[in-house]
């Protein structure tokens, strides 16, 4: 199946969890940093990453703290 993470296309086997998908996208160092996730435009709480299974054409957004006004 095909999913996007921050607009980047990934091809995965079926039944990938969000945790597994994030491991493909984030460096090991970055997995330890602060980030938050939205699935198809809806907030996904961190405790739900392991129990949320991705489907074909799902889109993940992974956001990080940056400076802002």
């Amino acid at each position: 199946m095909k999913i996007t993470i921050n607009g980047q296309l990934f091809e995965l086997e079926q039944d990938h969890s969000v945790t597994a998908a994030l491991a493909l996208f984030l460096t090991p160092q970055q997995q330890k940093t602060s980030f938050a996730v939205a699935l198809n435009g809806e907030f996904l709480a961190r405790e739900n990453y392991p129990v949320t299974t991705l489907s074909h054409q799902d889109g993940l957004d992974v956001l990080f703290p940056i400076q802002g006004g």
Partner: peptide
Amino acid sequence: VTLSLKRQNPAALAGETIWRYI
């Protein structure tokens, strides 16, 4: 102090530096 969230290139850790300073 105001700040924000954005997408970031996984290879770039500049945001993490800013976050630490904030």
